[in-house]
Design a protein around this nucleic acid. Structure first.
Length: 138
DNA sequence: GCCAACGTTGGC
DNA sequence: GCCAACGTTGGC
């Protein structure tokens, strides 16, 4: 993973609904169902080739992999109102899980939107935050 | 299972 | 336009 494609986003999924293993098995997936305007704005800002941490919420509460945007945001076909967006992702690599508890213990990561806004399902990650998280996995 | 955070809805 | 009621998400 080159510094040029450090993950700058984080996507949350409930693992019992759709896990990183499911993404690997399918090879590609439409990321739909986002019904929050801030998360929508983040989806709209994601470009093809951007990478994102893949986070398991609820039972796992850990970053478990990295994925990549393969199709930029388009109207979410599952949204009857026509307001929200979806995009397509593919798996890049699985990671040894990095727990939310560990992330919360790092003073440098205290400002992460994952921590400050626990309900936001599509979070931005700063370059510094991403570098610190990735360096843990080496 | 509980609760905090937060978004949405609808009465006024 | 305010705010109470309610629904959802996600951590604990």
């Amino acid at each position: 993973l080159s510094p040029l494609n450090l993950p700058r986003w984080l996507l949350k999924s409930e693992p019992h609904v759709f896990s990183y293993a499911d993404l690997v098995r399918k090879g590609r997936e439409m990321w739909d169902g986002v019904r929050n305007h801030q998360a929508k704005a983040n989806l709209a800002a994601m470009a093809v080739g951007d990478t994102a941490f893949f986070y398991h919420s609820q039972t796992d509460r850990a970053i478990v992999g990295i994925c990549r945007v393969v199709k930029a945001a388009y109207l979410d076909p599952t949204d009857a109102s026509g307001k929200f967006l979806a995009l397509d992702i593919e798996p890049v690599q699985a990671l040894t899980p990095i727990s939310l508890a560990w992330l919360k213990q790092q003073p440098a990561l205290a400002g992460m939107s994952l921590i400050k806004q626990s309900r936001l399902s599509v979070c931005p990650i700063t370059a510094d935050e991403s570098h610190r998280i990735i360096s843990l996995t080496n």
